[in-house]
């Protein structure tokens, strides 16, 4: 059985956010919920200051606190290592959200994509209401709705349950890469099977000293970060006293 993981090469990452926006697109994720997200930091004082960007997503932990805490087993591990969510079993208790140390689980407090149910038009008779446009275009929940986000997690999740990144399990099942990996223009996201010693991810976690987020908590995250966002060089110096 494979054990899927992702390597994120911070040297290649340019901080553009295409991964996160593309994920919204692929998974019909509603506003306010970020399956793919980031941590940004501005470090230093002018002029010795730099901006850093770390892309984040569900870490698909091998020892996932969200799975351990779920009362209904809605949150569960697949055999391939993906931390998966079954919306049929979710009772919306949010225990997983509280237990997750990474803040990657979100609760649907309202029916998603409220924007597209509005009946107001900016110029009556001249522009459309979102509802009217939806009726014309079709789609479910949004006009650019992706029907291929199906199979396990719902194509769009209803009010009252949580949702999070599923490593695009619906794509992986078709032997396609997660969409964020495809969408990254910098080839900064590398997906693969850690059980295969010849996979790119296996090679990269051996070649570099990767760090993982909050490793000390023992969650065994499967998102490995390599290299540095700011690859600047400087002239050799011994400093001074």
């Amino acid at each position: 059985m494979p054990r899927y993981a992702m390597v994120i090469d911070l040297q290649r990452c340019v901080g553009c956010g295409a991964c996160s926006i593309a994920c919204r697109n692929e998974n019909n994720v509603p506003e306010g919920i970020y399956w793919s997200n980031k941590i940004t930091e501005t470090v230093g004082t002018f002029p010795n200051v730099r901006y850093h960007y770390i892309p984040t997503l569900c870490n698909h932990c091998a020892a996932a606190p969200c799975v351990r805490g779920c009362p209904t087993r809605a949150m569960h591990k697949l055999d391939n290592g993906i931390t998966m969510h079954d919306p049929n079993k979710c009772i919306g208790c949010k225990y997983c959200e509280f237990n997750c140390p990474y803040g990657v689980i979100y609760f649907n407090w309202e029916k998603p994509h409220r924007f597209w149910r509005s009946e107001e038009a900016a110029i009556p008779g001249g522009t459309a209401s979102p509802k009217e446009l939806m009726e014309k275009v079709g789609g479910q929940a949004t006009p650019y709705f992706n029907p291929e986000r199906t199979g396990t997690a719902a194509t769009v999740r209803p009010k009252g349950i949580v949702e999070k990144c599923t490593f695009c399990d619906h794509r992986v099942a078709k032997k396609q890469l997660p969409y964020c990996v495809e969408a990254c223009p910098a080839n900064a996201r590398i997906f693969g099977d850690l059980m295969d010693p010849n996979s790119e991810v296996s090679i990269l976690v051996g070649k570099f000293r990767p760090f993982r987020l909050r490793e000390e908590l023992g969650t065994e995250p499967h998102i490995f970060y390599i290299r540095d966002y700011n690859p600047a060089r400087y002239r050799a110096t011994k400093g001074g006293v």
């Binding site: 049929n88 396990t152 209803p158 619906h170 099942a173 078709k174």
Partner: peptide, 15 residues
């Protein structure tokens, strides 16, 4: 539609 979506879980992903 919401429950349709739920009902479809378990279906194999198509092409």
């Amino acid at each position: 539609p919401d429950l349709k979506a739920l009902a479809q879980t378990g279906k194999a992903a198509g092409g």
